[in-house]
Amino acid sequence: MNGTQRFSDEELVAFLDGQAEPESARAIERALATDADLAARLNGLHIDMAGIREAFDGLLPLAPAFDEKVEGLLPPAGGRKRLPMAVAATALMCLMAGAGAGWFAGTRQDEGWQSFAATYHSLYVNDTLASVHQPDAEIAADLARSSKALGREIGEGAIRRVAGLDFRRAQILGFGDQPLIQLAFLSNAGAPVALCITRAGPASRSGIEMKRLRGMSAASWIKGDYEYLLIGGHDDGLIERAAATFAESL
């Protein structure tokens, strides 16, 4: 029997890697003394280990600087999480999709809740809401729960006042230790739009400010101890008009 047939490729690789069982290693060494085919097989499995390691070591300097890019994102020692992981994970999934590559790396936590809400909303597509048709009783119950979490009334009449935005559902999210209510709409053009509401900091007031967040039309304002962000699609006119209506009705 030809000796080379006695050893599998796995055994030979383990031998080359110095990780073979002692008995197997001794058997291979003994066979090598007389079996030229075995030596050829071993030679055929040889790779330049030092070359691989050296080439990959050349990648290490390309890693982002930990101090600049990571440390600021970490939760404080013994402290709370700074953003709900569900939001962080969905935000990251968006980034992994390449839609916002590099954004996570460059974001600092003091950029505030609107950045995260915008990232969360950027995952919405028409299909996210197109099939959502809740019965009236469920809508009323969701709005009641959202109102309770937020500490202020969110009336169904007030949120159905904008022509061109069809209300679909209310969700209770959170940012840090504050509730964040998301009211989701579909525009007549089929774009998902969200009105996000959370508590404002002390003594904050501001009128409607139009902006663009993650490529979407957005408007934010502060009124009555609450901050509002209306975001979605690319129709600045719709967002501006809707923001004016919500700012008055809510």
Partner: peptide, 16 residues
């Protein structure tokens, strides 16, 4: 880009 994002998420997750 994905490596940047994944490595950062793993750091956050590791502390949690």
């Amino acid at each position: 880009d994905r490596a940047d994002d994944l490595a950062q998420l793993v750091c956050v997750r590791a502390l949690e």
